[in-house]
Design a protein around this nucleic acid. Structure first.
Lengths: 191, 191
DNA sequence: ACGATAAGATACGCAAGCGCATCCAAGACT
DNA sequence: AGTCTTGGATGCGCTTGCGTATCTTATCGT
């Protein structure tokens, strides 16, 4: 068993360390030195892979979000599916607040990019699970798909995202069911 | 007329400059030097008022949000009132995204404070306009106040805030009316 | 065993940012 | 005019972070 990390193993360790730095200290205090130290390596190792801090941040976000292999729930009802997906997001994507911190903290001004670029990373190569859930609900006759606006469809997750951003933490299950039962479902039934 | 700024006038100029720095370069790149330079002064002037960068940031946010003297609309209907207030927030509070950037970028880790602290600044000494609007609607018989959850009442502004954060810009009037007409009002009428 | 590659370590020099000390000068008040 | 307060300017020294060069060493493949 080798002691010195190499190739993809080393790269993953570097990105994990970078992520922890982002989470624990925020984008404002994110430095190459801190990442290197946390990863148990030295800065030239980072520079051999990423030309600068911004690229390392971008790669870190892609790395963390890219490993997020979500199971698309199938509970037999739209309510169940949406709640299950929200629980999953809640448990795994509270880290989205860390991503948002990069979104907001000056990254765009510093790099000359835009919010759409970060959204592209998040969305890359991924089927939107919501589309699947709604198609199923339509097949079951629960909803008329064409009658639901995009805004209604994304509403539970917009509100969940909002909670993450405002509180920097996952929400309680009561909040999830409140969103679904008192906001989302009444709107679905209304249309 | 004196040429050298003094007292409250100077302090306002300093805080305005600090705000512009936050807006244009983000919290991650916010420095005392840049603020002093933008304000046409020198760093000791800043340090005479605020012990460090974090305190300057906190004071800047309080300054910007504290000058926000909102008129509480009275259009004769809840829809009208909510839309008017949202338009006002949309026109003046897109800058909330800049505030949020501080919220997220590591300020709390750096200062040992919490999201509740920032919310206290925002809310300080201010009557919540929403309470006024809803009380009026109840007086008019439009709604049963006790039947509306806090979440329904704050929903338009939660969604507006979400839009600000996601897009870093004000929204179109179409988005405002969509939120009110297809999300908020159906929920109000449902209860 | 040997060679190639890449990881790890260290050092260098530069610039920025910071916190502070010191001095000068403008402005207000008596 | 004199005094006090505060604004403005400059300089100092320290630390941190960065980008890079150089050297050593571990590991892998042949």
């Amino acid at each position: 068993m080798s002691e010195r990390r190499r190739g993809a193993v080393l790269e993953a360790a570097l990105l994990d360390a970078a992520w922890e730095e982002l989470e624990q200290n925020g984008y404002a205090s994110f430095t190459m030195d801190a990442v290197a130290h946390r990863a148990g390596t030295s800065r030239p190792v980072l520079y051999r892979r990423w030309p600068d801090r911004h690229e390392l941040v971008r790669a870190t976000i892609a790395h963390v979000l890219g490993r997020d292999r979500r199971v698309i729930p199938d509970t037999g009802s739209l309510r169940g599916d949406i709640l299950a997906l929200m629980r999953e997001v809640n448990a795994t994507r509270a880290q989205l607040a860390t991503v948002m911190s990069v979104h907001l903290a000056g990254y765009y001004q510093e790099t000359g990019t835009s919010p759409a670029d970060l959204r592209r990373i998040v969305a890359a190569g991924r089927e939107n699970p919501l589309d699947v859930l709604f198609a199923r609900a339509a097949d079951r006759g629960e909803i008329r798909l064409e009658r639901l606006s995009d805004r209604v469809r994304s509403l539970p997750f917009d509100l969940l995202r909002h909670e993450f951003v405002m509180n920097l933490a996952p929400v309680t299950d009561e909040v999830l069911t409140e969103i679904v039962d008192t906001i989302f479902l009444p709107l679905v039934q209304h249309t």
